[in-house]
């Protein structure tokens, strides 16, 4: 008889043993006085003397295996409170568990970005959403009646004081610098507001992350270095970056930062407007007038600042083409993240 075939048979039959009675039948079949193993043992003398040793060992191993399976089964049947245990489940049925909730995709992106900067040593600071004109504009070197303010259309609050809803997170620069002396490395996430007509790419409320660093000897090259670490961490090591001269009233020199289009890898597509580049943030060296407003000596300190729209980054990252979907909070959308 073929020992391997018997082993397979043992494995198969022990599976259907589910009661004391069927276990006894199993035992008799294999280990009984006239059982299969007894038959095997009795066949040994008929073998060629050279084969006997090896065969005998295999039979012994089989015997041990069957004995231990029986002991094991006895134990499991006993713990089944004496009754025979039926298979009560179909493993093809849905598993039973509490469903996990989820963080809003914007929170996930905010956490990721803040996490990268925190690892580099930046501290996270938040500021109020209701701001003064001074912190939102004047302190940041944005004259009140000037075309440079056109891009910062702003919601004002009814009331005697001219208070507004911050149109960017930059006022937190003023707040932090007025309170603390350099060195500073700070990151500021938060909601900002602009009275823009709502469409696929505009929302009157959105999120920004502002970052700034001030110390002696901070250079534009440092700004490039920090933002490169950030962009590669978010969009991948093989992303290309470029710094394009631009204008912001609160930085000089100022730069807009583009990354090579993550959709077409720079070849040009509808997402990047055939340019091969995607603008992701604005940045620059903090303007000396801003330092003067907060009482820092611009001869002693230099610093850089940057700001980005979180929705924009999230849209690029997840391939979302309509900003409004973030604020609709459709569960079918939220459950994807």
């Amino acid at each position: 008889m073929d020992i391997d075939a018997i082993k397979t048979q043992v494995d198969f039959e022990i599976g259907s043993v589910d009661s004391v009675r069927s276990l006894e039948a199993f035992r008799l079949k294999f280990l009984g006085r006239k059982g299969i193993i007894a038959q095997l043992t009795s066949s040994i003398p008929n073998l060629h003397p050279q084969e006997r040793g090896a065969f005998g060992q295999e039979v012994n191993a089989l015997k041990n295996k069957v004995s231990s399976l029986i002991t094991e089964k006895q134990r499991s049947i006993a713990s089944g409170s004496g009754e025979s245990r039926q298979r009560t489940y179909d493993i093809g049925m849905p598993g039973i568990a509490q469903e996990l909730g989820s963080l809003h995709p914007l929170t996930q992106v905010l956490n990721e970005i803040c996490g990268i900067f925190k690892k580099m040593g930046f501290a996270v600071v938040e500021g109020p959403e209701i701001e003064s004109e001074y912190n939102n504009f004047t302190g940041l070197n944005i004259p009140l009646e000037h075309p440079s303010r056109d891009v910062f259309d702003t919601f004002y609050l009814k009331g005697k004081e001219r208070l507004l809803l911050r149109s960017h997170t930059s006022p937190v620069q003023i707040r932090v610098m007025k309170k603390q002396k350099p060195p500073l490395a700070v990151i500021v996430p938060g909601r900002v507001y602009r009275p823009d007509a709502v469409d696929a790419s505009h929302s009157f409320m959105f999120h920004q992350i502002e970052g700034f660093m001030v110390d002696r000897n901070i250079t534009f090259a440092d700004l490039k270095g920090i933002l490169e670490v950030f962009a590669k961490a978010v969009f991948g090591e093989d992303i290309k970056m470029r710094f394009r001269p631009h204008f912001f009233p609160f930085t000089e020199p100022s730069a807009e930062v583009d990354i090579s289009c993550i959709i077409c890898k720079g070849r040009g597509c509808s997402v990047c407007g055939k340019k091969g580049w995607l603008e992701i943030l604005g940045s620059g060296m903090i303007h000396p007038n801003v330092f003067k407003h907060v009482g820092y000596d611009p001869k002693k300190y230099t610093g850089f600042a940057f700001g980005m729209g979180v929705e924009r980054i999230a849209m690029l990252k997840y391939g979302i083409n309509d900003i409004r979907i973030f604020f609709e909070n459709d569960l079918r959308f939220l459950k994807q993240f």
């Binding site: 509490q98 469903e99 996990l100 909730g101 989820s102 963080l103 809003h104 914007l106 929170t107 959403e129 919601f155 909601r191 507001y193 009157f204 409320m205 973030f326 604020f327 909070n329 569960l331 939220l334 459950k335």
Partner: peptide, 13 residues
């Protein structure tokens, strides 16, 4: 989130 709730972000205005 562990208790199964979904985070939403709605307008402040």
């Amino acid at each position: 989130v562990g208790l199964g709730l979904r985070e939403v972000i709605t307008y402040s205005l």
